[in-house]
Amino acid sequence: MKGIARSLMTTLSTFSRKPVTRDYPNVHKPLPERDRAFPLLLWDQDIDEPFCTGCHACERACPVECMTVLMKDNPNHKTVGGTSTRRKIIDKFWIDYARCMRCNICVEVCNFDAIAMNNTWTGHEMSVHDRKDLVIDLQGLLAQSRAGAIKEWVPVLGQTNE
């Protein structure tokens, strides 16, 4: 019976401890900087256009082929009287969040630091009624960064803490 008593005492000791419940939908725990939700595109606030040039690097590297990228000539390029140094720029971009497996490879292969994993709660709470709604277009992908609502973390492969 000693063991049963010990077991009862164990539960009694947890009874007196503070509950560990996180009141999830009401209280969101702070997410770490590196948190990985779904990828989104970043907005170059200085020139007011996306960083993405539509180079297809991420599309090719994606293991699950969830991206579709189309590029166009940049109408804002210097040669045509604009302010941008980007000759090509993203025209259309779709990411199927339903298929994305959040492996971070697209971020690593991007040469322009134009794509990042969403590290805010908006990136996690994506439930929709129809799978179709998880295919996000360019506007949707850029919206959060354009509004400045994200402090992105773009990891560099093999980067150390020096």
Binding site: T68, K92, W94, D96, A98, R131, K132, V135, D137
Partner: peptide, 9 residues
């Protein structure tokens, strides 16, 4: 991924 679905345009 379903009938009539796909990447738009």
């Amino acid at each position: 991924q379903g009938e009539g679905m796909g990447y738009p345009e």
